[in-house]
Every structure is written in C-alpha cells, then in structure tokens.
Write a protein that binds this DNA or RNA. Sequence first.
DNA 1: CTGAAAGCGCTTACAG
DNA 2: CTGAAAGCGCTTACAG
Lengths: 349, 349
Amino acid sequence: MTPTRARHGRVTLTDIAKGCGLSRATVSLVLRGSPLVHAETRVRVEAELKRQNYVYHRGAANLRRKVSSGVALVINDLSNPFFAEFAAGVDESLAAAGYVTLLGSTGESAERQHAVLGSLIEHDPAGIILSPAEGSDGARLRALVGTRTPVLLFNRELDTDWDFLALDNRRGARLATEHLLERGHRRIAFFGGHRDSSSCRERRDGYREALAAAGLTPEPQWLIECAPTRLEAAGQTGALFVRDPAPTAAVCYNDAVALGLMAGLTARGRRAGHDFAVVGFDDIPEAQVSAPPLTTVAVDPRARGRQAAELILQRLRDPDAAPTRTIAPVRLQVRASSDIASVPPGDIA
Amino acid sequence: MTPTRARHGRVTLTDIAKGCGLSRATVSLVLRGSPLVHAETRVRVEAELKRQNYVYHRGAANLRRKVSSGVALVINDLSNPFFAEFAAGVDESLAAAGYVTLLGSTGESAERQHAVLGSLIEHDPAGIILSPAEGSDGARLRALVGTRTPVLLFNRELDTDWDFLALDNRRGARLATEHLLERGHRRIAFFGGHRDSSSCRERRDGYREALAAAGLTPEPQWLIECAPTRLEAAGQTGALFVRDPAPTAAVCYNDAVALGLMAGLTARGRRAGHDFAVVGFDDIPEAQVSAPPLTTVAVDPRARGRQAAELILQRLRDPDAAPTRTIAPVRLQVRASSDIASVPPGDIA
DNA sequence: CTGAAAGCGCTTACAG
DNA sequence: CTGAAAGCGCTTACAG
C-alpha cells in the first residue's frame, strides 16, 4: 500500500493511471494542465500523484515532443571570476525561463572545447552559449555543432553566422586611455593580452584611437604582449622599462593583468597609483580590494550573463531570424590605481 | 544526396541503418563498440555515421537503459568565489567521468532551493551534489528528493542519511586562534556568521577550544554575529569596541567577513595587521590581494569540488553502502593581516 | 470528457 | 555475426 519502491521502481504515468482507474492519456493531460479534463477527475489524479510521490520524467516527454529543456553554457573556467559572474547571470535567467544549465569548461583550450561541446551536444541542448577558447576555429566548430542547434557567441567573435554578444572593447579601452590622458599622461602603454585574440585587438584599437585623437602615437615598446594571467603579467613588468622613453601609465588588457602588473611594480620598488598609473578591464571583485583599488572598465558580467540567456531564448523563439550582433555597454570605474601623485613634472605635458 | 536536413530532420540510427543496408540493432552495436560486429561492417557503419553527420541522442539511450549521465550541482551562488571554485572542481571531475553537470543556484534561500531541486530532479540526475542553503529542512528535502537519487551534502550537515563532505571547521578555527595566541594576543574575538549555521557553530567551537587550552574564556562582547557578507561585517565593526576589554584580534567566520572587518577598521582609523590582527576562513582569491593580504584558513575549494564529484561517483557505483562522512583537511595560510606591530604591550601577556 | 494506438530515438535479449 | 521485436516514459492526434 505504501508507495515506497525499490531503487529502480520509478513511479510512472501508468502507475498513476492504474491507481485511479484512468488511462495514461488522461493523466498526461492533467499533468500538462489541459482544460479538457473534468475538474473532479483532475482532483482525483492530483491526489494520486501526490500519494505515489510521482516525479515527472522530463527527458521522456522531451523525446516524445522533440523539444529540449537544457541550454549548454561553455566557458573558459569558473575560477575566473568574470566567467563565474557571467555563468551566475546565465543560470539565473535560464532557470527563470524553465531551462536547466548544462555546464562545460574549456580551460581555454580549443581541443578541450571540441571534446566538451561534442559531449554536451549529445545531451541535445536547445541552444548553446559559447565563450570561445582562444584559438577556436569557427569552421571546425560549425561542422561539429551543425545547423540544428543555435549558438550564441559571447566575448570572442568567430567566422560563423551565429549570434554574437560583444563587449564594447574598443569604447572601454578608449575611455580608459582618455582618463589617463586627462590626468596628464602622454606616454601610455597597452599591457598584456595576445594580438591574435579579437578582444585584445579591439581594446588596442580603442587605445590607439584615444591616443590619436590627442595627437599621439604609441612607441613600439609600449605595446607589451603577455598571457592574460596575473603571473605572466607580473613577469613581463620589466619590459615596460627597458627602453626610454618609458611609459608613465598603462591600460591593461584585463584586471588579472593589471593586478599582476601592480605586483610587478611593487617588486621593482614602484607603486601603482603613486608613481605609475594602472587601469584594468572587467571590474572583477578583486579590483575593489586590491592595494591600491584598481581603476577599471566595468562590464557587469552578471548582467551580460542575463543578456546572453535572453538572446539565446529569443533565438529559440524565432530560429529563422537573421543573426544578431549585440554590443553591451561598458563604463569606467575610477579608483586609486590611476592616481598619479608622483609622476615627475617633466613627464606631464 | 547531401546529408543536410531541415531544422527538425534529426539523423537517427534508422537513417544510418538504411544508408548501409543494415538493421538499427547492428548500428547500435557499432556505436557502443560491441566486439560482436564484423570488422568490415563496423567500418562501413562508421563511414556512414560520418557521412550523415550523425549525433548520438544520449537522452533516448538513457531512457531505454534506465540510466542517467547527468549530476546536479546545487550551490548558493557562483558570485561567491568559494562556490565558483568548488563548482569548477566538481565540473572538472564529472566531465572526466563522462557526466554532465546540471547547475542550480539557491541564492541561499531555502524556498528557491526547493524549487530548483524540484526542477532538476525532473531531469533525472544520477546524483545530486548539494551545498544546502541556510535554514534548509532535512526532512523536507528528503521528502522532495526521495530515495532513488543519491545526494552528497557539502559544507552543511542536515538531519538525513545522505553522504556528507565536511570542511574541518573546528580544526581550522583552532589553527587560526592558536596562531593569534602564539603572537601574544589574549583578547581574541570571533567575528561574523550566524549561530544557527552548523559551520559557524563548529568554527566557534574550535575557537573556544584553543582559548580554553590557553586557559582563556571569551567575553560575551567578543562574540559578534552578522550575516557572512562584506557589507554586514563592515557595519558591525564598531560592536567590537563598545565595551572594555576590547579585543586586539579577531578570528572571522569567513574571508568575506574578514575583508569587511578590515574595511570597517580602516573607516575607524585602525589598520588590520598593524593595530589589530585579523584572520579569515576560506582563502578566496581576494585574500591574496587585499590590503593588507589576509591571513586565513585555506580549504582549497577546487580540490573539495573534485572530492565531492569523486564521492558521488563512488556512491553511484555502490548505492547500498553505508552513508559516508568525509572530513576535508584545512591549513593556515599566514599573511600580513595577522601582524601585530602596534598592539599595546600591555595587551600582550 | 476519456481511451486506444502510434511513436520519439535508442538498446537488448532472443532467434537464427 | 545480424535482424525482428519489445520497451524505456512520455504525448498527441484521432475516435467515440
């Protein structure tokens, strides 16, 4: 009499139907809230569902209906607070819309990305939100994913016809550079990132634009590449000062790089915000509590995550609309790392 | 002739079978790598799979086999770097074992947790990794999840027969307190957290133990409760100093609280690591870059995530073994916030 | 308003 | 070594 069951005795619609002398079809209609079924019947079924502790098997329903209630989210790694916030925003909006988030991490490796996507696709996601790993090959990804599953690209554009949610990298870097120009700097470096990444190229473009508008051209030694990690950035700090004229400030590819640069400066007896100005990009939580706090370009990754979810949901509603290209706003968040108290007067125009 | 298909023209086993004049059964055997099928047949099938760009529908296979390849991960929120790292570790190990992570966030609300779990369970996860929201009701969760799906509890114990992965809270707080005692402090506060959370109680126990071993008893005003957020902690800072004897050091419930306390101290003209010693708990990434860097109890959340995944996988292998209770190691990470250069000599025994 | 039947895409004994 | 048939848990026309 008790509805307790052995480990594999799942309660199914058939059990419920039997339990109240109806057909599976009718029980299914109750489940899906159909107005067809008699009010009294509905009550009877609902009681039986409760009594037997029924749990809906969405996978079976999805199979039959040829729909899916999952959306895959493929990002670099949750250890990166930028992506963690982004993922939180995605999950929040997807959950609100009744979808479940299928998580995948690439570790910034195109190979792992291929494997992870291959595995996720077998779970038949309704859509995919993908922040491509560095070095991703658009054509290869396109061949893997096929045309059946819509993809929203975030952050890095690829040569595909997929929807794309971009950060306004160019404008962000322009704002950062203009901020330093306003504070009197004339020798401003662009520090970190790799030229083959599109986001890095765009940020460099914004930086150049702002300099050009002020009648300035960057010296080659002000353009330092390095992997976008704190450690690499700290190690490359010296490269800023090997040749004259050395910069008095740097726009960094992102906050991780900026924090690394600040550590590198400290190690060389300099202080960010005191005798060298530093601006980051992303506004990760650490930017608020670093020493000194980091002036940076805020992109609100959590809001970007919500936006990405809305875009893919929109695409599910209208699969045949033309591909979209959305540019998310950014804003400058000024903190102490861009103070310039001790830049020698001679360096200020 | 081309394998291109309309939006809902999924290529199925039937298509492949037709394509090479075999039965679905044989194609299925090829897919699952059965040694039964003739080598030449296998080659033919594999070519056809490639030609038609077949993608396996794991959901259909799982339905038929009565298995599941998903594991649900339910945590507070990815904005919290502790949980983000934990989730990264979980996902890493689950992916390596061929499972996909189904993400759910509770936002530390028992109500949302109920809703999220209810939705995830419908996706038929093989297991659930749950870091319970504060105020979770074990019996209610047990009723919701039932006995079919194994659950691994992380961080917060509930009154259930589920597996449990604990941090060694008591030992961590003891290490933190002993560290301050060794540096000469005698008036040590325990700051932040709520008494009704089990992790907070355990950390307080460790703190008391260490004090007791040194022949000390905490004054009531050294035990300050507050929500485990930076903002709340900053706001409660004053409470430490309303009555004499005021503490010269604090063991904090976690790093967020410790960072908030440091901000609160600064706002009151004090400096952590200078005239007041602060120790945190968790070692979140921000602890390294705060000003001053935060001495804290490191729990390596990413390793904990991997461990949680291994534990639930173990449980899937052996569903009938007795519930396990695993205690993860912790260690003290000493940084500058627990320096005590200017604590008045009178305060040091 | 309710039921019988077919079918989603796969797997698995069971024959042959 | 390969195929015919049944079935996983659900939904959806179609009758009645």
